[in-house]
Amino acid sequence: MLGDLLFWVLAAVAVGAGGLVFGCASMARATYALLAALSAVGGEVVLLGLDYLGVVIVLMMTLEMALMAVFMIMFMMSPSGLSPMSMRHNTRGAAAICAGVFGLLAAGALLAPWPERAGRAPADPTRALGLSLMGPQMLTMTVLGMVLFATIVAVVVLATRHGRYDRPPAGAREAARRGGEVG
């Protein structure tokens, strides 16, 4: 009963905040409306019994949206939304696509022959899900993750040799050299 109620509340938040993303004129508001929607989705995943996945979704989306706000603002005119602007482009086509996709997904959810539960739910559904998704490739994926991570760190190391701050601007360097010749 409580679970049902939570499900519908979270679903309403997710859809409502998702719609708000396109209603906000401000990039900051749009980004954080998206975060609210995604966090509600994380809550739904927790309701499914996948605690770990749900909380990780909230964690990752929080960090990602905080950074994405920076990029959204960087690339948009009128970042603070003080002048009216619209997040909607090609309204009619987009609406058609959205309605189509929604219909497809809803039809799939309602019409698919869902299997009956055989046996009991595992003690740790996250673990079971991970094993059934990754299976024998778990070690490979873990190693791959570490390699990717090490690559990121290495790239950062290479990039910091000439960081953004400590390098004198070309103009100033030029001026210093000219100054040196004159003086």
């Binding site: 970042p79 603070s80 003080l82 953004r164 390098r167 601007p169």
Partner: peptide
């Protein structure tokens, strides 16, 4: 203030310039 869009007469739009990168 942070420079913002032309919402009213006294808020100029940000100008752009060449960055060092």
């Amino acid at each position: 203030p942070v420079v913002a869009g032309p919402v009213s007469d006294h808020l100029p739009l940000a100008e752009r310039g060449d960055d060092r990168d």
